[in-house]
Design a protein around this nucleic acid. Structure first.
Lengths: 330, 330
DNA sequence: TTATTATGTGTTATCGATAACAAAATGGAT
DNA sequence: ATCCATTTTGTTATCGATAACACATAATAA
């Protein structure tokens, strides 16, 4: 393995000089610079950032902890985050918390063991006491994303799920709906979803509408679950004129079932999703949904990181806009 | 920051003893073990893996380079990879190549600077000469995924895109189609897509069918592009009875356009996608598609890594199955 | 010419762990 | 009590860089 020293020997300078040249710090004459570059190039030298970070007591790593990489929302955020951080030579490493506080704790420990410069962590789950202590003790600049309503991190970037619920409610109310349902899954773990549900149900109830909540723990948040729960809702003989789903996938499953059951959407029942991830995928139906812009969120996070790298990350809160995307299901 | 030494002092032993206890190596008496654990616990010690890896000359890092994190296929692979590697305390860090050989080269360099134990890299693009040299020189165990037809890595895991194209062709031929088109995008960069296209067109032509290829560089591989290119195809006045799309998103866009244009699917035109990512998302239409199992792929990769960690990664090739998912568009 | 700055370049200590080997403690067996 | 084999613990060197400062060398001023 080629080291700084090998390059130094070939270029006939000290390792320190090579280090300076390669990082562009310090004052090195043009000739030695080219000599060093040539040597490094000839040897195919790739710096060892493990050693570098250890020595400099600062790393170029950004740790990201999200519930699931396979979830489009987070994937989009990370992708956008990556593309900006990349320009600053910051590497991203990721872990999944699966919405489980215990897992989150373990993962954060793993992540911290790499001594990242920043920790980007999805909020929305009830972190354990130990997790909070760890974060505090380590003093890593810590950005919480997704749960914009809860300013836990030093910086918080995310949509307000309370607002999302309000938007759904006000839209349903404008349409004059009087009997509505919320259909979700795993509500006990997902604080963000709970916020949407509560503010939605709260507003609807306050306006005198009849409400119903259907959730079931340990149900994957997929189309089939939407179908299942919608099926259950209808079985109960309940007549609803609007359903707000946990996410788009479940809304689509629900739609599937409603149409199969002979109901007309939006004439008989109106349907609203959350997340806007399905806009791309549907053919005739454009789901009415409340969407957040993952790309923008990622950008904001990246900007926050780049602006504060090396310094103190100030406490701040950025609320990302949530917008109502009118489709043809309401 | 708490170090090994702090723990050692508190437990009244040497750092080496602490190191051994925490890693479970060497023979340490039960009492010192508990003493060390208690001390570590009290101090909230989290090992510094930068230092550890540097010292042990081996890291617990797995580098992953894929075209795009936001792409469902890859996200699924990484997610499944993560969940297995996690059990072995292997951390994943990722980078996007954007299907650009230059970017790939830069990213690989960044990734190698962390001295990963394994490099998982998506094939399907034409790597630069320097990239190949780097990989060889570094001798990192290197697993190529996605392009199962091209055994470039020490281990290759992926579907055969040639087979995928053949499956599409044979299905179309069984249905008696005589005039078919392939609609794609960015074909010059994406070798995998090219393989599908070529084997599809090859087989169709060999069977005497009339074929047409419509691709355009620098077009995002999204629904809109599918709409656009399908529009263009129809404009040309060409009558086709089957279209094979680059991926599901584009197929869905295509479908959207075909239906808008008053064509019946599958009666007038048959449509086939690739990837099976949309099964979840559609409501009435189940797109006929050729799908690969990203989860299984990730598992295979993880297994390969876990089995060969610390040792030599033997050259191997695992072809992942591609299956025809019959929907109602053919 | 000598003193005084800049401008380059090199020295030494250090970061936080682990490997490899060395030393001490323990426990029978004689 | 002595010795050898185990079991347990500690020492020293090292991994590959960087920080901080020290030392040359060249450029400018007095």
């Amino acid at each position: 393995m080629v080291t700084l020293e090998d390059v130094a020997k070939l270029a006939n300078v000290s390792t320190m000089t090579v280090s300076k040249v390669l990082r562009g710090t310090g004052a090195i004459s043009k000739q030695t610079r080219t000599r060093v570059f040539e040597a490094a190039d000839k040897l195919g030298y790739v710096p060892n950032r493990l050693a570098g970070s250890l020595s400099a007591r600062k790393s170029m790593l950004v740790a990201v902890l999200i519930p699931s990489i396979a979830d489009t929302v987070y994937a989009e955020i990370i992708s956008s985050l990556h593309s900006l951080l990349d320009q600053a030579s910051l590497s991203i490493f990721i872990a999944e918390s699966l919405m489980d506080p215990e897992v989150e704790e373990r993962q954060i420990q793993e992540l911290l063991s790499l001594r990242p410069a920043f920790l980007v962590r999805s909020g929305g789950i009830a972190s354990t006491q130990r997790t909070k202590m760890l974060l505090q003790r380590f003093g890593v600049p810590h950005i919480q994303i997704w749960d914009g309503d809860d300013p836990q991190g030093q910086a918080t970037v995310g949509p307000s799920h309370i607002e999302a619920g309000k938007i759904a409610a006000s839209h349903f109310l404008e349409l004059g709906l009087r009997k509505v349902a919320y259909i979700g899954a795993e509500t006990h773990k997902d604080i963000c979803a709970s916020r949407r549900m509560e503010s939605f149900i709260g507003d609807m109830t306050a306006a005198g509408a009849e409400t119903r909540v259907l959730t079931e723990p340990d149900l994957p948040r997929q189309a089939e679950s939407g179908e299942l729960l919608t099926h259950r809702l209808l079985e109960d003989g309940l007549q609803v004129d609007g359903i707000f789903y946990l996410n788009d996938a479940m809304a689509i499953g629900g739609l599937r079932f409603l149409l199969k059951a002979g109901l007309r959407v939006p004439e008989d029942v109106r349907v609203m999703g959350f997340n806007g991830t399905s806009r791309e995928q549907t053919i005739n139906t454009r789901l009415t949904t409340i969407s957040t812009n993952g790309h923008a969120l990622g950008q904001t996070v990246a900007k926050t990181i780049l602006e504060n790298i090396g310094g103190q990350l100030p406490t701040s809160r950025t609320l990302c806009p949530v917008t109502l995307d009118l489709g043809n299901t309401t």
